[in-house]
């Protein structure tokens, strides 16, 4: 009996690890896609290049994570793997590409915050800033995770995230403490995005099972995140914020806003029209 319980727990943890890895990958991919939408539309050439470089880092991080999720899934009997991931089109092999291209909205686990539209420059900057602070503290903790591969991905990614944090902090300060117009835009951006912030710190079941139970507490992540936000907001002469009880949630469990469908329609179009196309 006892050994059965242990086996069951191990299975549950592996399932949770796959969900967690996919969750992290989906956040990175969706943010990468959002940033890439600015390609050719940046306000000045240097910042256009900044956003595409950041997009490249995010997509690279998502590839490392999808590759790991695919590896874990391929080790399982196919039936079991397909019970864990809801594919819209069943792939012959589970790969980073099939995970990115062949799942529909309900199978994506990204936070609602990151699928929100780019809006104007202020909203784009604020979203990248929120994401950078979140990932900075999350990856700092994850790089000590018991799962070596996840820890290695976090260790690699946190260096890139540190640079994004520096860049986006500077822009929040520049806009918040800039002109009346730029400050007004930042205040509007805070109003637009803040209702989605709380979801970052509400653990999904798989997150609790996988890593937050032993070493990552959401409390600590939340207070680190909020302190950093308010520290930069103060320099930017923006009003301090707090995280209330009410917020929009659902993304981590597959319940999304209508925006995600449009992202996937554009991103997955080619693979769904010409399955297995390569170039």
């Amino acid at each position: 009996m006892e050994s059965d319980t242990i086996v069951m727990n191990e299975t549950a943890i592996t399932d949770a690890l796959i969900d967690c890895t996919l969750q992290l990958a989906d956040d990175s991919l969706i943010m990468g896609h959002r940033c890439s939408e600015w390609c050719g539309h940046g306000p000045v050439l240097e910042q256009d290049i900044a956003l595409t470089n950041i997009a490249l880092d995010y997509v690279g991080q998502s590839r490392n994570l999808y590759q790991y999720a695919a590896l874990l899934l391929e080790q399982l009997p196919k039936e079991k793997a397909l019970s864990l991931v809801d594919f819209d089109i069943i792939p012959e092999h589970i790969t980073e590409d099939s995970l990115a291209y062949l799942r529909d909205v309900g199978a994506f686990k990204n936070h609602l915050l990151f699928e929100q539209p780019n809006g104007d420059w202020a909203q784009t900057i604020l979203k990248i800033f929120f994401f950078s602070v979140y990932r900075f503290y999350l990856f700092q903790q994850l790089q000590n995770n018991a799962d070596e591969r996840l820890a290695a991905i976090a260790e690699k990614s946190v260096k890139e995230v540190t640079y994004h944090l520096k860049w986006s902090s500077e822009w929040v300060i520049r806009l918040g403490d800039g002109t009346d117009e730029s400050k007004f835009r930042m205040l509007q951006a805070i109003d637009a995005l803040w209702p989605f912030v709380g979801e970052l710190f509400e653990p999904a079941g798989y997150e609790t099972l996988c890593y937050y139970s032993d070493m990552l507490t959401f409390e600590r992540l939340r207070s680190d995140w909020l302190n950093k936000i308010n520290q930069i907001f103060e320099t930017a002469t923006l009003p301090p914020q707090s995280i209330g009880r009410w917020h929009q949630t659902g993304g981590k469990n597959g319940y999304h806003s209508e925006h995600l469908g449009y992202i996937l329609a554009e991103m997955q179009f080619l693979q769904r029209t010409f399955p297995n196309a390569i170039w």
């Binding site: 540190t162 640079y163 944090l165 520096k166 902090s169 500077e170 300060i173 930069i232 320099t235």
Partner: peptide
């Protein structure tokens, strides 16, 4: 070490 502080 690359530091996250703004305008460092």
């Amino acid at each position: 070490v690359c530091h996250p502080d703004a305008f460092q």
